[in-house]
C-alpha cells in the first residue's frame, strides 16, 4: 500500500486515490493520465497519442515476450531490467495495473526474492488487459494493433 500511495501522488490520477483507499485493484487504463501526457492535451486525435501508443505497444509486447523467456531461463538480471523498464513506461502511459505488477516484480527482485515463474503469466495477463482497454476505448484499431505486433513478430 505504501508503494501505491507514492505512485498515486506523482501519477496525479483523479481516480487512483479513491480506488487505492477502497483497497480495489488499480484501473487497467487511467485515461486521465493518458490524456494529460505532453502533446496530447485531452485530444484523442492528437498525432502524438498515436505515436506514443505505437511505441508503447511495440516496447511492451516485446518486453513481455522477453520477460517470459527470461523467467523460463532463470535470468534474474534480465527479468529485473525488463520489469523496471515496463514499470516506467506503463505507469507513464496510465496503464496502472500493468505498471503496478511490473513494479511489484521489480521490487521483490531487488529485495532478494527468488524468481517466480508465475509472474510471467501475471504480467502477460495485465498486458492483455491493457491492450484490450486501448481497443475498447478506440484508441487503437484492431487492425492497427495487429500490424504493429506483426512488425515485431510477436
Amino acid at each position: 500500500m505504501e508503494n501505491n500511495k507514492k505512485m498515486l501522488d506523482t501519477a496525479s490520477s483523479p481516480l487512483a486515490p479513491q480506488l487505492a483507499a477502497c483497497g480495489q485493484p488499480e484501473v487497467v487504463l487511467d485515461l486521465a493520465v493518458l490524456m494529460s501526457l505532453p502533446g496530447v492535451s485531452q485530444r484523442r486525435d492528437a498525432p502524438v497519442l498515436k505515436r506514443l501508443l505505437g511505441i508503447f505497444v511495440v516496447e511492451t509486447s516485446r518486453s513481455v515476450g522477453l520477460l517470459q523467456a527470461a523467467l523460463e531461463h532463470g535470468d534474474r538480471e534480465q527479468v529485473g531490467r525488463l520489469a523496471h523498464r515496463m514499470k516506467s513506461s506503463a505507469l507513464a502511459i496510465g496503464a496502472l495495473h500493468l505498471g503496478t505488477e511490473a513494479r511489484r516484480l521489480d521490487s521483490s527482485l531487488k529485495a532478494g526474492s527468488p524468481l517466480d515463474p508465475a509472474d510471467g503469466g501475471i504480467i502477460a495477463a495485465a498486458w492483455r488487459d491493457a491492450r484490450q482497454a486501448l481497443l475498447d476505448e478506440g484508441l487503437l484499431g484492431a487492425d492497427e494493433l495487429r500490424s504493429i505486433e506483426a512488425s515485431i513478430g510477436s
Binding site: V48, L52, F56, E59, S88, S89, A92, I93
Partner: peptide, 15 residues
Amino acid sequence: DDPLTRLMASEALRE
C-alpha cells in the same frame, strides 16, 4: 534509452 520517455519529454519541452 526508453523511446516513450524521450518522445514524451520532447513533447513536453516543445510545449
